[in-house]
């Protein structure tokens, strides 16, 4: 995060700024009797873009919430450089940022206040420096003109970019993206994909992206994990995944639209 970090700014807790490793081992999650994740094990290497794909309801976002420390596992462990992400100390040390699907911007605060909240609350640097950091993040994402707007006045694409800018101001070592291109038009989705890739290039941040956007995954991922019904089917590079012959993966990556034998009719027949 060299270009964002001011020379006079030295975070009080975070001394090691190198990208971090994320380890998920035997992760299981159940809500009551309903199992959502089953025995998930994977490693995200420092500085890579790791995309988690899968059909809706496959547990992608739940897995991401575990990595963010927002959920506690029913079984197994999640670790960021060997430390539990649900502990405030770990979040402080590694400055973990989560870009929510909805943006989760604070609706009562302006764009500027949304971005300045983290450094202000953690007293990371004096106010003029915070302003500089916020404006730099907004410039990187080309949204300087939204600085005084409220989230309610922004379009979907702008909200996503503000959410990414908010993450950027945190100078994170890990950025987690939950469906960053959902509900966006193809051009805006491509822009967001470019931003994610650029952030990785410029700042060597470890990125985990949950998405069912194949174009995004194949364009920016170093490796892709595919989840299906809460189970991890594979972790491969984009090139390897393209060659994968697993029928479930093929169906997910290249679903054919068959108007003669529609899927829902098959499902209805099976149900009867």
């Amino acid at each position: 995060m060299a270009s964002l970090r001011s020379k006079s700014f030295s975070p009080p807790v975070r001394d090691d700024r190198s990208p971090v490793r994320i380890s998920v081992s035997g992760l299981g999650k159940s809500y009551g009797a309903q199992g959502v994740l089953h025995d998930i094990s994977l490693e995200v290497k420092p500085g890579e873009i790791f995309v988690i794909m899968g059909p809706s309801g496959s547990g992608k976002s739940v897995l991401l919430r575990h990595i963010a420390g927002l959920e506690l596992p029913s079984a197994g462990t999640v670790a960021i450089n060997g430390q539990d992400p649900s502990l405030p100390d770990t979040r402080d040390r590694f400055a973990l940022a989560l870009v929510f699907q909805s943006g989760a911007l604070f609706n009562s605060l302006s764009v500027y206040e949304n971005l300045a909240l983290y450094p202000l609350e953690h007293r990371l640097c004096p106010k003029p420096e915070i302003r500089e950091r916020v404006m730099r993040a907004l410039r990187i994402l080309s949204i300087e003109n939204a600085v005084h707007k409220l989230p309610a006045e922004l379009s979907g694409g702008m909200k996503k970019r503000v959410a990414i800018a908010r993450a950027l101001v945190m100078e994170p070592q890990v950025i987690l993206y939950d469906e960053p291109t959902s509900e966006l038009d193809p051009v805006m989705a491509a822009t967001i994909a470019e931003i994610i890739a650029t952030l990785k290039e410029q700042f060597s941040v470890t990125s985990v992206v949950v998405s069912h956007d194949r174009d995004l995954a194949f364009a920016i991922a170093d490796r892709i994990a595919v989840l299906h019904q809460g189970r991890l089917l594979t972790v491969q590079t984009p090139a390897e995944l393209r060659e994968n012959r697993d029928p479930i993966i093929r169906e997910f990556l290249q679903p054919s639209i068959n108007l003669q034998e529609p899927r829902f009719k098959k499902l209805e027949a099976n149900h009867d």
Partner: peptide
């Protein structure tokens, strides 16, 4: 509404305790 829209989770990930703020 902040809880449902994810704002509280955002605070938690930013290590800003909702109890304090």
């Amino acid at each position: 509404s902040m809880r449902v829209s994810g704002e509280i989770d955002a605070l938690v990930t930013m290590n800003i305790p909702p109890e304090r703020m």
